[in-house]
């Protein structure tokens, strides 16, 4: 069982995972989620039994951390005195309002749209991350985009 040195995952996929999380939870929470994702991955890494799709494996962990972050945010809305200056994450730059609309989508659609357009995954890979079929992944992206478009026009 040959696994590449973890440093290689960090360098090859770390930026993708960060982009995905920035689009998924916003630029402020993305860094925390990224740290949690990579620490979880490093903990589990020596026991990993496959190495065919390490990027998908990392994105799957990232998706779980994003869900955790959403749940935590619902439980604990933290009022802040000063809004931190938002570092412009790559995926946010084209249009922050658009990504805010994406983040208002229901769970699976939100994950599917983000994986499609921020992490550039194909539908089969999206299905593996959010645990559904390729067809269901495609449907989630389509439905998600339709909602975003409606909100956009409004």
């Amino acid at each position: 069982m040959k696994l590449p040195p973890f440093q290689m995952l960090l360098e090859e996929h770390g930026p993708d995972v960060h982009r995905y999380l920035a689009a998924r939870v916003g630029p402020i929470d993305a860094e925390d989620c990224w740290q949690e994702t990579m620490l979880s991955a490093l903990r589990a890494y020596p026991k990993l039994r496959h190495q065919s799709n390490l990027r998908g494996w990392l994105l799957r962990i990232a998706e779980r951390k994003a869900l955790d972050a959403h749940r935590a945010a619902k439980r604990l809305p933290v009022p802040v005195e000063h809004v931190p200056e938002q570092p412009a994450a790559a995926a946010e730059r084209p249009d922050p309002a658009l990504w805010r609309a994406v983040r208002r989508l229901p769970g699976k659609q939100r994950a599917a749209v983000t994986l499609r357009f921020a992490a550039d995954l194909d539908y089969a890979a999206i299905g593996r991350v959010i645990e559904c079929s390729e067809a269901a992944a495609r449907q989630n992206v389509r439905a998600g985009l339709a909602s975003v478009r409606r909100e956009w026009v409004r």
Binding site: P5, F6, Q7, L42
Partner: peptide
Amino acid sequence: LADRVSPRVL
């Protein structure tokens, strides 16, 4: 090093 010691190489 990853093969013979551990893949947790950083």
